[in-house]
Simulated assay, not measured.
Amino acid sequence: MRITGGTLKNHPLIAPKGTKTRPTSDKLRQSLFNICQHYVEGAHFLDLFAGSGAVGIEALSRGAASATFIEKERLAANALRKNLQNLNLSSPSTLLIGDVLTLLKKLKGKTFDLIYVDPPYEKGLQEKTLLLIDTLDLLAPDGLLFLEESGAHPLSLPPLKSLTLQKERKVGSTLLYQLIKKEKSL
């Protein structure tokens, strides 16, 4: 695994051992950052179910001002911490270790310009996470949220008050959903 773009391009990343995490492919990360390239510079990035941190680290490499990572699995969190240290990214980063749904509540009052959600497939966490992000109003105005899901299990969007699906893309065997914050009606 390596960083695919920005100032740290081609630097290797440590991936956690075991089968509890599923690294986001280079191809998907490249597609993601091609889509949001005009939003990354100076952005506050939230990487949920972060694993090795590849997506958030890629955002920092491409000019994000900060990245907050949430990861529950100890081996993945340890790999993420080592990646941040090895790349001298500890300063613009916050690593929260624990359950995403619990820790998101502690972020209430903060907003992020870009949010990446990559929960384990087939666990029902996609809908719960989107509802909580929506309820806590964590996406900044004009911000983008991306959710990764298996192409074999298309997402069933829950009713959301401020987020709306903008686009759905197939990248390899993965679906990438792009949501935006709805305009507030007067």
Rank of each mutant, 00 (worst) to 15 (best):
165 L>G: 07
158 P>I: 14
111 T>A: 15
79 A>T: 01
111 T>L: 13
175 L>I: 01
141 P>V: 03
86 N>R: 02
126 Q>P: 04
145 L>M: 15
134 D>V: 01
88 N>S: 15
161 K>L: 01
161 K>P: 05
117 V>L: 13
132 L>A: 05
74 R>H: 11
121 Y>V: 10
100 V>S: 05
140 A>L: 08
176 L>H: 07
169 R>V: 03
134 D>A: 05
119 P>G: 09
181 K>A: 10
88 N>D: 14
122 E>H: 09
135 T>M: 12
98 G>V: 06
125 L>E: 00
111 T>N: 15
125 L>I: 03
149 E>D: 06
90 S>V: 03
135 T>H: 06
109 G>D: 00
84 L>Y: 08
103 L>N: 00
114 L>T: 01
175 L>V: 00
74 R>M: 14
179 L>W: 03
114 L>D: 04
86 N>K: 10
139 L>A: 04
121 Y>T: 09
120 P>R: 02
113 D>S: 13
116 Y>E: 08
163 L>Y: 12
126 Q>I: 07
175 L>W: 01
79 A>C: 07
166 Q>T: 13
167 K>V: 07
139 L>W: 04
91 S>C: 01
149 E>Q: 13
164 T>A: 14
90 S>C: 11
147 L>T: 02
109 G>H: 07
147 L>Q: 02
89 L>T: 09
100 V>G: 04
86 N>W: 00
90 S>L: 15
91 S>G: 02
149 E>T: 11
178 Q>W: 09
104 L>Q: 02
78 N>T: 11
78 N>E: 15
164 T>L: 05
152 A>N: 11
127 E>P: 01
138 L>V: 10
165 L>Y: 06
129 T>H: 05
175 L>P: 06
161 K>E: 13
158 P>T: 13
95 L>H: 00
142 D>A: 10
127 E>N: 12
146 F>G: 11
164 T>Y: 06
87 L>S: 13
115 I>M: 02
146 F>W: 14
97 I>K: 04
81 R>Q: 12
166 Q>S: 15
105 K>S: 10
176 L>R: 10
145 L>I: 15
108 K>D: 05
155 L>N: 08
85 Q>A: 15
169 R>A: 07
163 L>R: 05
117 V>R: 07
117 V>D: 00
168 E>W: 08
136 L>N: 02
135 T>L: 11
133 I>G: 01
97 I>L: 02
88 N>R: 12
